[in-house]
């Protein structure tokens, strides 16, 4: 029975380690996706002057990704006049990322084309930088997190035995 419990704990530790490491991967992918979205925004705003809501619709339709629901949420909240925070529900983002993302989304559509381009360029640079940081953190910490997780599992097993 004890061995069965230990195996279960070790398996749980293994999956917990994997899941924690996945946050870095997801954050990296999200920021990469955001930077691609910025390019999409720029071409639609500067050339076609497409309206914000239609840009979101087009992006979700043409470039469907695991973040579609997040983009839909952004779209709904940008169009919502109450202007409440738009990044609160994204669990894998850090607090400072949420603030920056929120400010970016609040600024979308609020100025002329030239200023919109500047806003998008600045945010794209931020997203690319964060993506690089996430990739680097993932490389350096992914193994460590996994090992720590397994070690915690092992310690619990030893204590039980």
């Amino acid at each position: 029975m004890i061995y069965f419990v230990c195996i279960t704990i070790m398996a749980a530790s293994y999956f917990a380690g994997k899941e924690i490491a996945k946050i870095y991967v997801k954050r990296d992918r999200f920021f990469k996706n955001l930077s691609e979205f910025c390019d999409f925004l720029k071409s639609n705003i500067s050339f076609f002057q497409t309206k914000i809501s239609e840009i979101f619709d087009g992006y979700i339709k043409d470039y469907s990704s695991e973040f579609d629901n997040i983009y839909k949420q952004f779209q709904n909240l940008i169009m919502d006049e109450n202007g409440k925070s738009v990044a609160e529900d994204i669990k894998f983002l850090k607090a400072e990322d949420k603030v920056t993302l929120n400010n970016f989304l609040k600024g979308l559509g609020k100025s002329d084309q030239k200023n919109q381009m500047m806003l998008i360029d600045n945010f794209k640079n931020y997203a690319l930088k964060r993506s690089e940081e996430c990739a680097s953190a993932r490389r350096s910490q992914e193994g460590l997190i996994f090992k720590v997780s397994l070690a915690v599992g092992a310690v619990i097993c030893i204590l039980i035995i």
């Binding site: 705003i45 002057q49 914000i52 809501s53 169009m79 609020k110």
Partner: peptide, 15 residues
């Protein structure tokens, strides 16, 4: 409010 609704939150498209 009216300006935001009329421009569909896309002032750049109406400048």
């Amino acid at each position: 409010f009216i300006l935001r609704k009329a421009t569909e939150n896309s002032l750049y498209a109406f400048n």
